[in-house]
Design a binder for these strands. Sequence first.
DNA 1: ATGGCTGCAGGATGCAGA
Length: 260
Amino acid sequence: MIIATWNINGVKARIEGARAWVKDNQPDIVCLQEIKSESAGFPSEFFEELGYNVAVHGQKGLNGVAILSKLPLDEVSSALPGDDRDDQARFIEAVVSVGGIALRVASLYFPNGNPIGSDKFDYKLAWMARLEDFAKARLTDEEAFVLAGDFNVIPEPQDARFPDNWKRDALFQPEPRARFRRLINLGMTDAFRACNAEPGNYSFWDYQAGAWQKDNGIRIDHVLLSPAAADRLAAAAIDKTTRSWDKPSDHVPFIVELGY
DNA sequence: ATGGCTGCAGGATGCAGA
């Protein structure tokens, strides 16, 4: 069972590349973020032609998340509990059945939170608190579940090529990093770190100032596994190849293999 | 560098991203 997560930064601008990547890699499940499209405008047919079921929570112009799955998607929900007035499309979850075993998957687009001290920063922290409550509730079910997406958090200094550059950025502030650690401390496993101890592995390189050429990257796209899912963890890898494509997303896919 | 690009909405350029 291969699960991928990829912030594609605009599904319409990236559809040909995204389709080619999915066709070549044949993931069982793909969690997409920042589709920047309304649900009705999502080009589902490109993926349905490849044998995928599609669940979308879109928004006009910005944000937006989706799940592609070779297995049928059940119990699709696009509301992160805790704030009925939140209209930003950053959450979608669904359940698949793998050989009779339920696996719950969420595609998440955490708020960026810049600038520090703004309403956006407060929203980021509040959103992360809501996600923690959600994860806590899910963990009581003792099911296998996966939190996959663009967390917009640099967990540790080793997750940035130049950590000092991010000292005044929302992605590397003590509070968001602490909230990320709280998810880990609930019992979730950072799939990448469980498989790779080395620094120098990134999932995002800015478009500006030759960041990709200088390998000035950060690791902000993560997959967290519940204990039941972590028991199945077989491999985790970042696919950097897409970043050197023509007209790339600034994020690259991150792939986790679970032994189902 | 004053985010130095990029996508989107909309029909010019402003906003958001990280």
